[in-house]
Nucleic acid binder design. Sequence first.
RNA 1: GCCCUGGUAGCUCAGUGGAUAGAGCAGCCGCCUCCUAAGCGGCAGGUCGCCGGUUCAACUCCGGCCCAGGGCACCA
Length: 586
Amino acid sequence: MKQIIITVLTQALATCRAQGQLPAEATTEINVDRTRDSKHGDFASNIALVLAKPAKLNPRVLAEKIIAAIPATPTIAKVEIAGPGFINFFLQQDSIFAVVNTVLSQRERFGRSTIGAGQRIQVEFVSANPTGPLHVGHGRGAAYGSALASVLTAAGYNVDREYYVNDAGRQMDILAASVWLRYLELCGEAVVFPTNAYKGDYVWDIAATLHRDNAERYRTAWADVTGDLPADEPQGGDKEDYIDAIIARMKTLLSADDYRKVFDLGLHVILDDIRDDLQRFSVNYDQWYSERSLADSGAVQRALDKLQQNNHTYHHDGALWFRSTAFGDEKDRVLVRDNGQTTYFASDVAYHLDKFERGFDKVVNIWGADHHGYVPRVKGALQAMGIDPNRLTVLLVQFAILYQGGHKVQMSTRSGEFITLRELRKQVGSDATRFFYVMRKSEQHLDFDMDLAKSQSSDNPMYYIQYAHARVNSVLRKAEEKGWGFDQASGLAHLNLLTESHEQALLTALARYPEVIESAAKYYEPHQVTEYLRELAQHFHTYNNAHKFLVDDAALRNARLALILAVKHVVYNGLTILGVSAPESM
RNA sequence: GCCCUGGUAGCUCAGUGGAUAGAGCAGCCGCCUCCUAAGCGGCAGGUCGCCGGUUCAACUCCGGCCCAGGGCACCA
């Protein structure tokens, strides 16, 4: 509909130019918006205000000329000048009713758009290190990424959802060491657990599995482990140096093969847990991409070669550096450490090169806000390798703060005490958790009110929306019980009986849905969908309260049922995008 | 110090250059003989952090300042 108006305005402007009423150089992008107030019609354009200056005309005079040049269009009933020079468009009633027909025939396809057609886009999200269960911070990234991917799919993009598995690197070594030390404890060794090791209970579980399946095969005397190692933090040493020394010792005491077995057990147990957790959260992936595979396949070396060939690297202090300052970063970054090991950053350069080599037109990374400092170096590396950095969008998700009983829920990632996503889902439920996570725009700090999310009242926006869906269903059931059923053909034939202001408002709301999807996709903002659904549900509940649907007049009754059935479809479509269920009854 | 986010009603937040800045909650007053009251209506509530600038038009864009949170590794 909006497109029709833009087309019509484009034609009108061309006519004005042809008649010499508007200078040829007076051009601008045509802006058409829905009006806030129905007195201003259905759509409005500010075109006359924008072009008034270049046209050297009073905006209202220019608006007159534009309106005079607008070709007759069946869907437009009336065009008016208002205020300082707005052009207001009033739609034909028939084209307003048409949305019901469209929704009922397209059903779950209603709202899909083609703005992304032919474009491949990758959304990478969560990608938490498999060193422990997901916590509530990851949950927000999961809900947001998943909803965004669905929005983009609805907008016509070919979307690929990916989880980057950090299955290499120091943190994973620390996990392997943590598992092994707990295992030694189970074997009866008097282990003093390192300050910097992972202390969560899940580490005990993995160690127990290791012990159950392998008995004492990996056992070493604790004295042989610590031997001549530096002191840990409580003894005045450095906890980082200490844990690194433990890892090195573990690698010498176990064969490479055995080390890998312990390492992989931890990795697989935790990754399986994460997979399970996300699946229960209705978050699914097309690809789980292994960091280790980048090194194994030589992709990391290829990326380093590429940077070196393009003269963007140098050697210093025994390390290989990327000159990221040449691309706006605040300092240069190490790719290969003086000990010969590549950095996480080197893997990430290779990973991002690989993403674009896989043929994605656009790549979206969803990161925690604490990683924002990382953006310039990754974009810099892409540019250094000859890839347009604007094809990569990094979306930063701020932290979620949980509130319960009016108080902030204390969280500490230290000593393994944190609220897991699983625990949150268990307490609040998957639907409400997902809804609350995406209710706010991602760059906003989120105050997550667990009591509200759990409450089954209209105060809870998710229940409010779900209830609209269930309520339509309830009315339809009642129609069956009364022996009337629902005659869709009759309803569609009598849409012109829907003249109440509540009905008109609802029709407009339904027609807005495709625009909301496009906007949410364009700005990567799924929260627009939650906002919209709340408004739609509100229009519905208000209507329900003001008018009876199941009236004796069959024509009116069927028309109303057609309208509310359309509402049901749209609520379903929107909730589905958000990963929230739409119950038939509540 | 530098970099990223925020600052809009008592609280939580929409508002992505337009018309009189909106919603939910909290507060006050009302609405079930009726398809689910898990609902609806009304009242009250604002220096859009502050100061400049751009524009016909600024909560929105630009600059400076103040406040809050986060980030500034040869960790991941």
